[in-house]
């Protein structure tokens, strides 16, 4: 266990955290603002990667490819939204259906131009596509082309955009849809439309993040979104636990989500460094997120127990 080895890994953890942080901001929009647990994200993250990879290998400018990935993400969110509102399918199931469908769609997107018409993995070498936005090759260097700088800039711009959007008349309406749907309808806001738009924006951000991830790691893979929702929730919850008391402003809350993702990846690096097997990582993540999700419930039970005089029985 060499501490220098760990320190070497940390810049990578920060870069990964920043990229996943954008995904987590998408999760925050559905989970915290709209009060929906949207499982589409596992699929739409990979969709973003697939779209960006196939466009970049096809010679499209990486900025444009990443933006198109965002637009395709919007479409994925719309499908879940329509499943949920127009077809009356419970939100969580609607997300699972879209996620499942996207697995096939992603294989097909990645298969564009191949003989088989379907492909599980698209390599994206930085040596071949030198103008890609971010790459892990440069993450260890203290230089301008270190992806951390660009990711920081993109994150701050996105937080600014979200702060603006949710402060507009339309954005306030969306917040009301999540806060109290009955009140929203009484104020003339269509809750169905609101949920669709919210799911679109969320999945647009998730796909955007997936597009950046594919460039960063140098490949796109149909499996790359597996467990994304859990990582997103972990980032949201870590951000709230660590910065909740400090950050009250909406923009700062979004920043906390991004910081939460960075902390998550740093902790992962530490436990890997301590000798945890990579294969056990998802088990650990799931348990930690379950623990944090249980906190509010346990807290209220503890308060009730204290109010009853702290006795174990009635």
């Amino acid at each position: 266990m060499n501490i220098a080895q760990l320190l070497n890994q940390l810049p990578g953890a920060v870069a990964q955290g920043l990229i996943w942080g954008i995904m987590a901001i998408g999760v925050y929009i559905t989970f915290r603002i709209l009060d929906i647990a949207d499982l589409t994200v596992d699929g739409s993250f990979a969709t973003g990667g697939a779209v960006a990879a196939i466009l970049i290998t096809g010679g499209v400018n990486p900025w444009l490819a990443t933006l198109i990935a965002f637009v395709v993400g919007l479409a994925a969110g719309m499908v879940t939204g329509v499943f949920h509102t127009s077809m009356g399918i419970p939100a969580i199931l609607a997300g699972i259906l879209t996620q499942l469908a996207l697995y096939s769609v992603n294989l097909r997107i990645q298969g564009i131009g191949t003989d088989l018409g379907s492909r599980a993995n698209v390599p994206l070498s930085i040596n071949k596509y030198k103008n890609m936005l971010v790459s892990l090759r440069n993450v260890g260097r203290f230089a301008l082309d270190n992806p951390i700088w660009l990711m920081l800039l993109i994150t701050l711009v996105l937080i600014g955009l979200m702060y603006w959007f949710f402060g507009t008349e339309y954005g306030c309406g969306l917040r009301a849809v999540g806060a109290n749907p009955q009140m929203a309808r009484a104020q003339g806001i269509s809750t169905g439309m609101g949920k669709i738009v919210g799911l679109m924006i969320s999945n647009g951000l998730v796909a955007f993040s997936g597009a950046l991830m594919a460039q960063y790691q140098g490949f796109s893979d149909v499996q790359m979104g597996r467990g994304a929702i859990v990582i997103g929730l972990a980032a949201v919850i870590i951000g709230e636990v660590v910065f909740g008391k400090l950050f009250r402003n909406f923009a700062l809350k979004l920043l906390a989500v991004s910081l939460g993702a960075i902390i998550y990846y740093m902790v992962i690096q530490v436990v890997l460094w301590l000798g945890l097997n990579t294969d056990d990582l998802k088990l650990l993540t799931a348990l930690v997120v379950a623990l944090f999700l249980a906190m509010p419930h346990w807290k209220s039970r503890f308060t009730a127990w204290k109010l009853k005089g702290g006795k174990l029985r009635g």
């Binding site: 959007f165 402060g167 507009t168 008349e169 339309y170 954005g171 306030c172 309406g173 917040r175 009301a176 806060a179 109290n180 009955q182 009140m183 929203a184 009484a186 104020q187 003339g188 806001i189």
Partner: peptide, 30 residues
Amino acid sequence: MTGTAASMNIEENLALASRRGQPRGLRWGI
């Protein structure tokens, strides 16, 4: 509990209500 959004503040609730029945655009909410 039904008529107001608990997690939004007083002025935001009023601003939502003052736009009842109007198209909501990308102007600032209040």
